[in-house]
Simulated scan of single mutants.
Amino acid sequence: MIAGRKFRSRLMTGTGKYRSLEDMRQSIAASGSEIVTVAVRRVQTKAPGHEGLAEALDWTKLWMLPNTAGCQTAEEAIRVARLGREMAKLLGQEDNNFVKLEVIPDAKYLLPDPFGTLEAAEKLVKEGFAVLPYINADPLLAKRLEEVGCVTVMPLGSPIGSGQGIKNEANIQIIIENARVPVVVDAGIGTPSEAALAMELGADATLINTAIACAKNPVAMGKAMGMAVEAGRLAYSAGRIPVKVYASASSPLTGTIVGATS
């Protein structure tokens, strides 16, 4: 449940880096994802390879999550968020005020700016946006963003597109423990096992793009990620056994044969 809207799938997907629009379409369908993030600047531009992106997906069945990718300052992100809201309306989602907030001034490591993110989030919340901020796995920042009215927090597992997996497990667990809004692990997941781990930690959802789009078979990987997220959530709900420093036999010791008789 995000901003009062209920979703069946706990996997969010993206639209970048696919080899073709058809690969993108099929992969998202195979994943079972309902929330799909779209870079507003990709839709606005007419550059080669970007044509038809908005029309490639059926927005009567999917929920658009416009994102402010490419914005380096809070001011830029706010302007692009406003464009994203209008874009969603033009595509038929009149009540869509969601925005994935990204403020990334660092071109090499693509790490989000905590100060710019918080500044933009405060202003966008006041303008009626449902803000989903992309952040470093910083428990204090996550709580502050929740307090100013963000509807989720989205800590990175590791840098965008790196495929390094969950590199900050302890901090993500603290964020999950303290959050009163959904926690979405976003960025760095490279394999289904890593997606399952994010869910086993107690995350409410994951957002995965590069690992699906750049796989040798993106459609198969989309399906695998969808299954992994379901398995990880089910495992979390089931409750894992405690970790012990010693062995514990799984077979009962009663009725053990202790010696032979003649």
Score class of each variant (00 low, 15 high):
59 W>A: 06
107 A>E: 13
20 S>R: 03
53 L>Y: 04
224 A>V: 08
196 A>E: 15
111 L>Y: 10
237 S>V: 15
61 K>S: 12
12 M>Q: 09
128 G>L: 08
220 A>M: 08
181 V>K: 05
204 D>N: 15
142 A>F: 14
212 I>G: 01
20 S>H: 06
215 A>S: 12
159 P>Y: 05
137 A>E: 06
67 N>H: 05
141 L>R: 09
28 I>T: 08
114 P>E: 10
94 E>V: 09
3 A>S: 14
77 A>I: 09
262 S>F: 11
27 S>K: 02
105 P>F: 07
4 G>H: 03
104 I>W: 09
48 P>R: 08
7 F>Y: 15
157 G>I: 05
253 L>A: 13
192 P>W: 10
51 E>T: 09
199 M>E: 06
112 P>Q: 08
213 A>K: 01
177 E>M: 08
227 M>K: 13
174 I>N: 03
250 S>C: 09
118 L>E: 15
10 R>N: 14
57 L>A: 03
219 V>H: 07
125 V>M: 07
147 E>M: 06
79 R>A: 15
115 F>E: 14
136 N>M: 14
247 A>F: 14
230 E>C: 04
150 C>Q: 05
262 S>Y: 09
71 C>Q: 13
183 V>C: 05
202 G>L: 11
160 I>E: 00
247 A>H: 14
16 G>W: 07
104 I>R: 01
176 I>C: 07
46 K>R: 13
96 N>D: 02
114 P>R: 04
256 T>E: 09
103 V>H: 07
163 G>A: 02
15 T>L: 01
253 L>G: 01
251 S>D: 14
115 F>M: 10
50 H>T: 14
242 P>A: 13
55 E>C: 07
183 V>M: 08
238 A>M: 14
113 D>T: 11
63 W>L: 03
65 L>G: 00
73 T>G: 06
137 A>I: 11
109 Y>A: 08
41 R>Q: 13
